[in-house]
Design a protein around this nucleic acid. Structure first.
Lengths: 118, 118
DNA sequence: ACAACATATGCCGGTCGCCGATATATATAG
DNA sequence: CTATATATATCGGCGACCGGCATATGTTGT
């Protein structure tokens, strides 16, 4: 297993599966909803990513079903995927906090209040 | 400008520049410190990324100097980089919160307390 | 009847950020 | 005098993602 940080589409996929199992096309819609319409995962990304995540053991095929004559595969987050998602969110929380701390603690170079030390 | 989400090495680079300007090699050390030694940016990643970020206008070369006989280029976060970093942290904060909310709201399928509704 | 769109899965070529290795050069430590 | 730290830079390759295409059924509009 590669411990490399997840890219955002992958992170969103796992996030969309975190509360309940969903099928591929449903994930696209769910992610679009999560991101207020900003992120639209492409099918080329989706099915490739699902295959990869299956192989990595982060997700599982929970069941296959036919609804309105259309075949579906329903994916569920595996235990390892849950662990990976938890670890990733924790990591990202720290990075985000650090970025915000640094932006606030920024050393202003150009403007300086009069009387301040050089 | 491509509005695509930043990958983590890039995010960490901008984060490391958020408080004050630094030079390339110093960024590697700073990022290693930020991440408690977990992330070690490779030089192949670093200088390629710096070139890219320069071209995207997210960072600037603030000055060039020679310290102890070694040449340095000192990079600073540009205004656009600051905006990009702020936007990215805000986006990530939302994604992280959503992921955590969903993990907590998870629908447990296998185990169910006795007497609970189906 | 036919077109357009939503639902649903899947493949393939290309792009691009990251990795690993390599190269170059100076200063310091053993 | 060799190894390590500092410092910059290039190159080949990998892999995630994108955009486009293909396929098939169901629904809506004209």
């Amino acid at each position: 297993m590669s411990d490399r940080p997840l890219q955002e589409p992958t992170l969103l996929l796992l996030t969309a599966l975190a509360d309940e199992p969903r099928h591929g096309y449903g994930l696209i819609q769910e992610i679009e909803a999560i991101s207020q319409g900003r992120v639209r995962i492409r099918t080329g990304t989706l099915y490739g990513a699902l295959d990869r995540l299956l192989q990595q053991g982060l997700i599982q095929v929970e069941r296959e079903e036919v609804v309105d004559g259309r075949a579906r595969k329903v994916y569920a987050l595996a235990e390892e995927g849950r662990r990976a998602l938890a670890a990733e969110t924790q990591r990202l929380r720290a990075v985000v906090a650090e970025a915000e701390r640094r932006m606030a603690a920024r050393r202003v170079l150009a403007v300086r209040p009069k009387g301040a030390p050089a």
